[in-house]
């Protein structure tokens, strides 16, 4: 279980997250939604240990960062590095002795080609494959469905459900409510750096309605005029 208590994060005087209290249990999928800039990615980085913060994040078991697989929104791949070498790097990083990484290639990626030449969706699939090979206990997935095709979208949803079955902790963000409906057990609405509401499966529509912002009205006409 991950227990986040009174988490606050600021960049100088700018407060990004304020008094976040959340509990993520094993075998549950938690979704975090919010407008752009609400603080979702910052919260994920704090959980992963990539950002310092005030407050506490407690995890029962190992050191959290060493058993966490984090899929960032913006992926970075080194130039002149093949997909196979990327997976090898992730295995080495966790001291996993995977003999044949080709058998772990669930998305049928061209592992002998440079990862930098992959399409957006293929890059996401490669990163996700890396997290799965690492046999993590916690999965933080920031926009896992961004840029992937319909078939891969279905596979990712299947993976998330499988992780749930395997009693992993999954925390994810998405702007697509249909995917959240199918994958998540709990949904948390992050607005202006705080958790505005948390609901269980079946009540996600409440947050969806809450999130529907005002239209841009005449602004577009004025801009294009």
């Amino acid at each position: 279980m991950i227990n986040i208590q009174s988490l606050c994060k600021s960049y100088g005087k700018h407060k990004v997250l304020y008094n976040i209290n959340l509990i993520f249990k094993k075998g549950e999928v938690n979704g975090i939604v919010g407008e752009n800039g609400a603080g979702k990615s910052t919260l994920f980085k704090c959980m992963a240990g990539l950002e310092s913060f005030e407050g506490s994040i407690a995890y029962t078991g190992n050191i959290l960062k060493n058993v966490t697989g984090y899929l960032p929104t913006e992926l970075f791949f080194f130039s002149k590095m093949t997909g196979y070498e990327y997976l090898q790097l992730l295995c080495n990083a966790r001291d996993i002795k995977e003999k044949n990484l080709y058998t772990s290639n669930i998305f049928d990626l061209p592992l002998n080609e440079y990862a930098e030449n992959y399409s957006t969706g293929m890059k996401k699939k490669l990163a996700l494959t890396g997290l799965l090979i690492q046999k993590n206990e916690v999965f933080i997935l920031d926009e896992p469905f961004n840029g992937v095709d319909i078939h891969s979208n279905i596979i990712i949803q299947e993976i998330i459900l499988k992780l749930k079955e395997l009693k992993k902790i999954v925390v994810m963000s998405s702007h697509i409510f249909s995917t959240l409906n199918q994958s998540c057990d709990h949904l948390h609405y992050l607005k202006d750096g705080t958790i505005k509401s948390s609901v269980i499966k079946g009540e996600f529509e409440l947050i969806e309605n809450e999130m529907k912002g005002s239209s841009i009205g005449n602004k577009l006409v004025e801009l294009m005029d």
Binding site: L50, K65, V67, Y70, P72, L89, L90, R94, D95
Partner: peptide, 12 residues
Amino acid sequence: AEPVYYVWIHAQ
């Protein structure tokens, strides 16, 4: 120097 993510992934 590589991006932080590539250091962070190491359980060492």
